[in-house]
Design a protein around this nucleic acid. Structure first.
Length: 729
DNA sequence: TACAACGTGATG
DNA sequence: CATCACGTTGTA
């Protein structure tokens, strides 16, 4: 009877306030109270999975919660996990038992994956009951799995009753929704919440549960994926794609239209949080979309979608290895959904990323002013690449949320499929149940699996060398060939620079695509990116070195105040509206609540070597801060800064300032208060190579010539243009 | 028993 | 709405 306790919302109130404690009952801290408050009971608290990439991290020591911890010198009142360690897939506590039989999860006792589901513990997100599905009287009766959390579903009882419950999320979501770094409440312009309302309802049938839940966890699955595939031929290029947002919208509409189950959250009742989640889901969706290499192109895809998910059988997890021929086979059998073990991938990524961060930190520690090499051990000496927004749109890919299995047919002619399996939701919905997670850069296959069971002769790195010669647009096309190519083409070495400048809007899909590619350089200039979006991005791009935000709003740029980006080398905040001295202070200042002896008091932007401040109304106050907090600053752009004077230059080049020695390039063009006197100040700079004083009304050509002549004793300068001085190498 | 930290109420 | 706070849960 202990297990049959009623747990009410009222209890939760008691648990979490200072009111007198409710009486405790013997099992796992559950509490017994009158059950007058409705059907839903309190939920077992979940706990860390201890395996996800977040769990495997060490505490950052810099976030809000770390700073609170006693070990970091804080008071220890907040008792929260490090933000960087918010578990991605919190699990039921191991003390959890089945409400019916009182036993724990028993999936480990079975070999057959598809049998496991019935004996694993499932927690209902509505009534909070934890049961073995096998212990329910009505089996296979429409329980709906929430793919977002392990061991979470809407039990058949609740599901049939059409109830809705709060979405159960892990701590990652908790903080994602109310801390910097969240997209969850981000408004996405141009969308009608109603179009997406149904997506809040989990939509995975019991039939697919076993595979689902199981593939969340076992790591060996990844290695198991095997063979029998052959390479595919890239499709012709040049297909014009619809705009991604249209696609997304189309898809949503389709899903809504075809959904034959009533939308419990639907209509105008869709609340803010729910809509916010859509944003998050969108990013997840895009990510999986990429993993699958699927592309949504026309409404006809939608039949594919239905079929994808209509499968009542759960094959052994899709495992990301299905190539075209297999897919065709699968299609013929029409019964095998494909899905990648994303969390495995995340784990791998985490390792990879952490290693790189460590490498870079080491590098930073050792070097003084040498720029960090982007990829210290990159095998290929590939050229830098920039992809334009247009290219991305053209190529579809990560901006394109939808499922479609390629089956070898040219992409420009998506195969028409019968709309089988009506009544099940398309796979696209299920994908949206995933938590936000880092990009899946796991070890991709080293060779392309062939249909005859052998592997293609060329190893991945050779393919990578080939891919490195492709444009981003072409890469996006290649990504749709097969899963292996999809993985390969997403290699971050191929995407070191991502250019989204002047994009009309930054969508969650784009954000997701960026995260997956982990660029070193990101150009978001003149976009309307929001603070939360930027914060979310920065927190997930630990290796970002170049961030271009010119023309963005200060509100957005202020995300840099709260987010950590210690590796940032180039920061472009030209023409940021509202960025003045006060804001510069916020941007550069170290965390404010440092207690003595705690942390290092260094600026988050301490490693910036290239700072672009053109067009800002900043004064010497900002320059002093810059000098203090950017000891490595080598290139400084102050053009169009009307408050910059000779005195500013004096400060920059004063004895004892680090900038005096570190500065190699300065741009003071169109600074009308700068005179020839500044040139004499620059003589103090030992490393200066490039001085741009073009269009400075008070700087004379004669002054520049004099400077070049006087410097010629030690360094040869030439006048490239009028008032543009360049050191001769 | 010590420690980490979940989930939610209180506060600003 | 974001942040602070803390009782309590969960694990080692």
């Amino acid at each position: 009877e202990v297990l049959a306790l009623n747990r009410t919302g009222e209890q939760m109130d008691h648990w979490n306030t200072n009111r007198p404690k409710p009486p405790k009952v013997g099992v796992a801290g559950t509490v017994k109270l009158a059950a007058s408050r409705g059907p839903a009971g309190a939920r077992r608290r979940r706990t860390r999975c201890r395996r996800c990439e977040a769990c495997l991290r060490t505490e950052c020591g810099e976030c809000h919660f770390c700073k609170d911890m006693k070990k970091f010198g804080g008071p220890g009142r907040m008792k929260q996990s490090c933000i960087m360690r918010q578990c991605i897939a919190p699990v039921l506590p191991h003390t959890a038992v089945c409400l019916v039989c009182g036993e724990a999860g028993k999936e480990d006792t079975l070999d057959e994956e598809e049998d496991k589901f019935n004996v694993m513990l499932m927690e209902c997100s509505i009534c909070n009951e934890i049961v073995h599905p096998a212990c329910l009287e009505v089996k296979d009766a429409g329980g709906v799995v929430n793919d977002e959390l392990p061991n979470c579903w809407e039990c058949p009882k609740c599901s049939h009753a059409g109830k809705t419950g709060k979405q159960k999320r892990g701590p990652g979501f908790k903080y994602a929704s109310n801390l910097p770094g969240s997209l969850l409440k981000e408004q996405r312009p141009g969308r009608d919440p109603r179009e997406e309302g149904d997506l809040a309802t989990p939509a995975v049938t019991v039939a697919t549960v076993a595979r689902r839940q199981l593939e969340e966890t076992p790591r060996h699955r990844l290695e198991e994926q095997v063979a029998k595939k052959r390479p595919a031929v890239p499709p012709a290029d040049g297909q014009a794609w619809p705009r991604p947002e249209d696609d997304a919208l189309q898809k949503k509409r389709k899903l809504t239209d075809d959904d034959d189950t009533p939308d419990p959250n639907g209509g105008n009742k869709v609340g803010e949080e729910q809509e916010a989640r859509q944003g998050a889901r969108h990013t997840e969706e895009a990510q999986e979309e990429e993993e699958r290499g699927g592309v949504f192109r026309t409404p006809s895809c939608e039949s594919d979608l239905s079929r994808c998910n209509s499968s009542p059988r759960a094959g052994p997890s899709g495992e990301g290895g299905l190539e075209l021929q297999d897919k065709a086979r699968v299609r013929a059998r029409a019964r095998r959904p494909v899905r990648l073990p994303c969390r495995e991938l995340s784990r791998e990524l985490s390792k990879e990323l952490n290693q790189e961060i460590q490498k870079t930190e080491d590098c930073l520690a050792n070097e003084s002013r040498q720029p960090v090499k982007a990829e210290p051990d990159s095998e290929t000496d590939e050229p830098k690449r920039v992809v334009s927004m247009a290219a991305m749109e053209m190529a579809g890919d990560w901006l394109r949320p939808c499922e479609r299995e390629t089956n070898g047919a040219p992409l420009r002619e998506p195969p028409m499929q019968p709309t089988a399996g009506a009544g099940r939701r398309p796979l696209g919905v299920q994908m949206e149940r995933h938590v936000i997670r880092p990009p899946p850069i796991s070890p991709p296959p080293d060779r392309l699996p062939l249909a005859d069971g052998h592997a293609h002769i060329l190893r991945r790195e050779l393919w990578m060398a080939i891919f490195s010669h492709l444009s981003h647009q072409q890469l996006c096309v290649c990504m749709r060939i097969c899963k292996t190519w999809n993985r390969w083409c997403c290699d971050k070495r191929l995407w070191t620079q991502i250019d989204l400048k002047r994009s009309k809007s930054i969508t969650p899909l784009m954000l997701s695509g960026i995260i997956r590619r982990q660029p070193i350089s990101l150009d978001l200039s003149w976009t309307n990116i929001s603070k939360k979006q930027l914060s979310w991005l920065i927190n997930r791009l630990p290796g970002l070195r170049v961030l271009l935000l010119s023309g963005c709003s200060w509100v957005a740029v202020s995300a840099l105040c709260t987010s950590s980006c210690p590796l940032l080398r180039t920061l472009d905040v030209q023409w940021v509206e509202g960025l003045k001295d006060t804001q510069m202070r916020d941007l550069l200042s170290p965390p404010t609540d440092n207690r003595p002896g705690q942390l290092d008091g260094r600026s988050k932007l301490r490693n910036v070597t290239d700072l672009r401040l053109a067009g800002l109304d900043i004064t010497d106050a900002s320059l002093r801060l810059i000098m203090r907090h950017m000891p490595l600053l080598a290139r400084l752009d102050l053009s169009y800064c009307n408050h910059i004077t000779d005195q500013s230059v004096n400060i920059l080049t004063a004895v004892g300032s680090t900038t005096r020695d570190s500065l190699t390039q300065i741009n003071l063009s169109v600074c009308n208060r700068v005179t020839d006197q500044s040139l004499s100040f620059f003589k103090r700079c030992g490393s200066i190579c490039h001085i741009d004083l073009r269009f400075c009304k008070q700087v004379t050509p004669e002054g520049c010539q004099r400077f070049a002549a006087e410097m010629s004793v030690s360094v040869q300068f030439s006048l490239l243009e009028d008032k543009l001085l360049q050191k001769l190498s």
